[in-house]
Simulated assay, not measured.
Amino acid sequence: MANVRFETKIVVLLRADLQPWQRMNVTAFLVSGLGTVQPEVIGEPYRDADATIYLPMFRQPVLVFEAEKEILREAHRKALARGLPVAVFTTDLFATGNDADNRAAVGAVGTADLDLAGLAVYGPRNSVDRITKGARMHP
Score class of each variant (00 low, 15 high):
Ile42Asp: 05
Asn25Lys: 14
Ala49Cys: 04
Met24Phe: 11
Tyr54Leu: 03
Asp17Glu: 10
Lys9Arg: 14
Ile42Arg: 06
Pro45Asn: 04
Pro39Trp: 09
Ile42Cys: 07
Phe29Ile: 08
Glu68Val: 14
Gly35Asn: 04
Ser32His: 10
Leu30Asn: 01
Arg59Lys: 14
Arg15Glu: 06
Trp21Thr: 10
Arg23Val: 07
Thr27Val: 02
Leu13Asp: 01
Lys69Tyr: 06
Leu55Arg: 15
Met24Trp: 04
Gln38Gly: 00
Val37Met: 10
Trp21Arg: 08
Val26Arg: 04
Gly35Ser: 03
Thr52His: 10
Met57Gly: 12
Gly35Val: 04
Leu55Phe: 10
Tyr54Glu: 04
Phe65Cys: 15
Gln22His: 13
Leu14Val: 12
Ile42Trp: 08
Val62Ile: 15
Asn25Val: 06
Phe58Tyr: 13
Val37Lys: 10
Leu55Ala: 15
Asp48Leu: 00
Ala49Phe: 07
Asp17Cys: 03
Gly33Cys: 03
Gln38Cys: 12
Ile10Cys: 11
Lys9Ser: 11
Arg59Val: 07
Thr8Ser: 14
Val41Tyr: 00
Glu40Gly: 10
Lys69Arg: 14
Thr27Gln: 07
Pro45Lys: 10
Val37Tyr: 09
Lys9Gly: 02
Glu7Cys: 06
Glu68Asp: 14
Glu40Asp: 12
Asp48Met: 00
Thr27Trp: 00
Val12Phe: 07
Val37Thr: 12
Gly35Thr: 05
Thr8Leu: 01
Arg23Gly: 12
Ile53Leu: 07
Gln22Ile: 05
Ala49Gln: 08
Gly43Asp: 11
Gln22Leu: 04
Ser32Ala: 11
Val31Lys: 02
Val11Asp: 04
Glu68Phe: 12
Val41Gln: 02
Val31Glu: 06
Thr52Ala: 06
Leu13Ser: 01
Leu30Gly: 02
